[in-house]
């Protein structure tokens, strides 16, 4: 089992990280999709008690990945925020403290469907927001995947999951990276996010991860 798996995709060499992110060593870029910051706060706003600790943990995870890889930039592939009602002072404080500690890196955001409602991140987080799709460092970055694209692209939005079935009633369901020649769909990064099972086509590759180990599914 591995903490990461190097892959080559089109002309790029990427590293798929078990912690639901991709690193591109050549460009020193970390790709993260769908963190959905403030989701717990949105739930609380509607009267559903969810602890805030997820936000802090997700920031810690990013910090750890930046340190481990030596990334100089992060590209968020959409849905940075979950909803407007989740942009609360607690969330802001956690994100701001995290940014202060990591002010040496450049942050980019492809606006996802949730960001359109929630609005761009607070200015003092210093994140450059871009429309979907945009080319960043020469790679097409999207939030919403599309069926056919002129260029191969990285995308989020789906929160891809995969159920591995064994004999009898055994099964394991986990988040996954879904690769085709056309695209790489990243798993959702946020700790408080769900999964939607994908159906890979012939020739696709699927890597499942539980946050600690990553494993290529034989298809």
């Amino acid at each position: 089992m591995n903490k990461s798996i190097p892959i080559s995709w089109n002309k790029y060499n990427f590293t798929l990280l078990a912690d639901r992110a991709i690193y591109w060593p050549k460009g020193r870029v970390l790709y993260i999709a769908d963190p959905h910051f403030g989701k717990a706060a949105t739930f609380r706003y509607s009267g559903i008690p969810v602890p805030e600790e997820c936000t802090q943990e997700d920031c810690n995870r990013i910090e750890f990945l930046v340190k481990k890889t030596g990334a100089e930039s992060i590209v968020f592939l959409g849905d940075f925020f979950h909803a407007l009602s989740g942009k609360t002072s607690e969330v802001r404080e956690i994100l701001y403290n995290w940014r202060k500690k990591n002010n040496h890196i450049d942050l980019y955001l492809i606006r996802g469907n949730h960001d359109l409602n929630a609005g761009d991140p607070w200015e003092d987080l210093n994140i450059q927001s871009h429309p979907d799709p945009s080319k960043i460092f020469g790679i097409e970055c999207r939030h919403l995947p599309i069926e056919t694209s002129e260029h191969p692209y990285l995308a989020g939005h789906i929160h891809p999951g995969y159920t591995l079935k064994g004999k009898g009633k055994r099964s394991i369901r986990a988040a996954c990276f879904h690769l085709s020649t056309q695209h790489i769909i990243l798993p959702a990064f946020g700790s408080f996010t769900g999964l939607k099972n994908i159906k890979p086509n012939l020739g696709d590759q699927v890597f499942i991860t539980n946050g600690e180990d990553i494993f290529k599914i034989p298809l």
Binding site: M1, K165, G166, K167, G168, K169, R170, I172, D213, F215
Partner: peptide, 18 residues
Amino acid sequence: LRTQVSSESWSDRVKNMA
């Protein structure tokens, strides 16, 4: 319909099923 009970880790279970 059979259920399996296993004391293996996540990784080992994934490996076996794969």
